[in-house]
Amino acid sequence: MTREPTKTGNHPRKETDMASNAEGPADLRAWLTGCVAQYLRRPETEIDPTVRLADYGLDSVYALALCGDIETHLDMRLSETLVWDYPTVDELAAHLEELVAAQQPAGAR
């Protein structure tokens, strides 16, 4: 996706000490589940990764905030409508896995 061209490079800093794209698929899925649970103020055990987030009441603009959190967590720029297009925890985790894998330099794999 295209973003505003920045004149002097407004790249986000590493905003969290958790930022790491070395974690495995299970970690990412668990992190996402925790994140969604926080948004909904519900225990993680109640979040079914196959249920659409909108069915939990996570509406369109709310989903933008989640996208910002994922960007910060993975230290990646993402399409802001990501959560609309991958509307469950499982679909999101699988898609993010692919993006993270594609980003790793070949030697690191």
Binding site: P12, E15, V61, Y62, L64, A65, G68, D69, E71, T72
Partner: peptide, 11 residues
């Protein structure tokens, strides 16, 4: 606007 506030606050 509100859901964008946390990311704005960080960046």
């Amino acid at each position: 606007m509100l859901p964008q506030v946390p990311l704005m606050a960080r960046r």
